[in-house]
């Protein structure tokens, strides 16, 4: 299998500015993305995800290292790289004062299409992204989700072999986010190679074949979602029983439900925790079994590993954005 992206030792240093010292945004990043696969770059704000994408999309020159995209060198053969890629950033880079159709027509023309072809491509993309009705309206009347879809449509205008999506759902409401995921899954089915950056493990999990975790300009872990979660310990079920005397019988019952003996107990808070492989179904089972044994429950929860858990496990420190997890523009 050939690689759509190959990068070795990428380094990017932003020079010191007034009030801030030199920033080593990338500190030796290696990447390999086989054709037709999806790589998720996962990390908090400022980890170096966007810088990586900007170098691979020819917007920035690396200070050291080299990268090939679709077989072309990102510095020496930038124009060839640009013909092969589509880029959709976190800002929805479309012209607000043009209509959706006019934006797509413009991008088609700039992807070197003749007029007639650019016109039919614009119609086709509006249809594909459910924007046909809104296509004649200026983009400033669009909702956030519609703008992102249009932005993505623009990136696909030239039928790229390789697509870069830089935080495609950051700042979207949950419904629009699910809509975006459907769109992205559809692209993947058609065989597009994709590099996706995200702050959300859940998103990388849903969409990516392989996940690379980025922190302070380095890739600190790489693997499938399951492999990463296994490192963190996967899902956990937590139960707080009402009576201290019930802790011991509860522990025995939980071991039975989980099918393993690794159930942590905190006598003082009456909290029992065990890693679970059965999800919500197993949670119901836990409640049922404890209920049948007449053990009172104060609290019960299914905890999924968050990006913060992955980080804590891999780096020993929390993500800086974890407190504001959610909308970080």
């Amino acid at each position: 299998m050939t690689n759509a992206i190959e990068a070795q030792g990428l380094v990017k240093i932003y020079p010191a500015r007034r009030g801030s010292s030199e920033v080593r945004a990338l500190d030796g990043v290696d990447l390999e993305v086989p054709e037709g696969t999806i790589l998720g770059l996962l990390g908090p704000n400022g980890a170096g995800k966007t810088t990586t994408v900007r170098i691979l999309a020819t917007l920035l020159r690396p200070d050291a290292g080299s990268a090939k995209v679709a077989g072309f060198d990102v510095v020496k053969q930038a124009r060839d790289v640009r013909r092969a890629i589509g880029l959709s950033g976190q800002y929805a880079a479309v012209d607000e004062n043009l209509t959706g159709w006019e934006n797509l027509y413009m991008f088609g023309r700039l992807y070197e299409m003749p007029k007639a072809q650019a016109k039919s491509r614009a119609d086709e993309l509006l249809e594909q992204f459910n924007l046909s009705e809104a296509g004649g309206r200026p983009v400033k009347t669009y909702s956030g989700g519609m703008r992102r879809r249009l932005d993505l449509a623009g990136a696909l205008s030239g039928r790229p072999h390789l697509l870069f999506l830089d935080e495609p759902t950051t700042g979207l409401d949950p419904r629009s986010r699910l809509g975006m995921w459907d769109v992205i899954r559809e692209l993947v089915r058609e065989g597009t190679t994709l590099l996706l950056t995200t702050q959300y493990l859940e998103e990388a999990d849903e969409l990516a074949d392989t996940i690379a975790v980025v922190d302070t300009g380095k890739i600190i872990a790489k693997g499938t979602a399951d492999e990463l979660k296994a490192q963190v310990g996967g899902e956990r079920i937590e139960v707080v029983v009402s009576d201290r005397n019930a802790v011991e019988p509860a522990q025995i019952l939980l071991k039975g439900v989980f099918g393993h003996d690794d159930v942590e107990v905190d006598e003082h808070t009456r909290r029992l925790t065990g890693s679970s492989s059965g999800g919500a179904q197993q949670l119901v089972e836990v409640v049922r079994v404890l209920g049948e044994a007449s053990i009172g429950i104060d609290d019960v929860a299914l905890r999924r590993p968050t990006l913060d858990d992955v980080f804590l496990t891999l780096t020993g420190h929390h993500t800086e954005t974890s407190a504001a997890e959610g909308d970080v523009a």
Partner: peptide, 17 residues
């Protein structure tokens, strides 16, 4: 500021345009 310049710079178009 709207990111359009980045979009243009990622397209296979003449930079002078």
């Amino acid at each position: 500021s709207k990111g359009l310049i980045d979009r243009f710079r990622s397209l296979p178009m003449a930079r002078s345009a």
